[in-house]
Design a protein around this nucleic acid. Structure first.
Lengths: 137, 137
DNA sequence: TTCACAAATCGTAATCATTACGATATAATA
DNA sequence: TATTATATCGTAATGATTACGATTTGTGAA
């Protein structure tokens, strides 16, 4: 998902293309990994007079809902990144820089039979550690 | 892990056996699943005049650190339950009542080779859904 | 059993991420 | 360019969690 695609998606659903939205998308396009709302606020304050919490959180939620961003909870704080592949996958997440790597292993294949009577709705599989770049620096 | 074991663990490490700690352990022993700090506060207020946030959170953190409780983040709120088995395992978690079921599948066996150069520190694999009891009621 | 003291608890204020809202500004379109 | 629904702003409110000085209590020694 790149900025142009994201803006197309917004237009298709009747949402407006605003400067703020482009800025938010730029931030995540450059980011290459998970970032918090606070990271985004800091970025926005650097290149504008200010940014409203309302705008930050409203758009983060909207983008997640539209599949433009993915979200996960790390250290008690919500993190966001550009949605990568369309197919089902999981992530290695660097604790240091937030960078992610796709992992095409899904452990759900054999799980159904182990949970008789349960309705399985979704699952989370994440691997945490240090990426090669952070390891050497 | 039962209450007696937990109190032994505390004593061994030089921590005191207080009424509050016994009450907190009783709550989780009865709970059979993940509960929030607020759930615990509500329970404590029912059988005492009141309970300090300080006592709640200090002991929750202590118990996690000592392996008496396990913790996970659900819906942006920390949840706690009595640590179950000693061996490595994962959980099915009922979104409705917090009840957990052990799942003895671990997807990490083949992951190392997919992440060359990365230091893998830990991982999370959780399955979310509705348990049989909540399904029928 | 009582004493002394470190540890634990209490009550409450502070913090921090997130949500909410009335007022204002702006993108889309006719 | 005029209209209007949508988006943004500035700020206050919320809710979980953390912090802290004052008080209480469990524990081990006398």
């Amino acid at each position: 998902m790149n900025i142009e695609e994201a803006i197309e998606t917004l237009k298709d659903k009747g949402y407006k293309t605003t400067g703020r939205r482009k800025d938010i998308l730029s931030f995540f396009a450059e980011a290459d990994g998970y970032r918090t709302a606070r990271d985004l606020i800091q970025y926005m304050e650097q290149r504008h007079d200010g940014i409203s919490f309302d705008t930050i959180y409203r758009n983060l939620h909207l983008f997640v809902e539209m599949g433009i961003l993915e979200t996960t909870e790390l250290d008690g704080e919500k993190h966001f990144q550009i949605a990568c592949a369309q197919h089902h996958h999981h992530h290695f997440i660097c604790k240091c820089c937030g960078k992610t790597k796709e992992v095409d292993i899904c452990p759900m294949k054999n799980v159904d039979s182990m949970l008789p009577g349960c309705i399985i709705e979704n699952h989370k599989f994440e691997i945490y550690g240090i990426c090669p770049q952070c390891k050497t620096s």
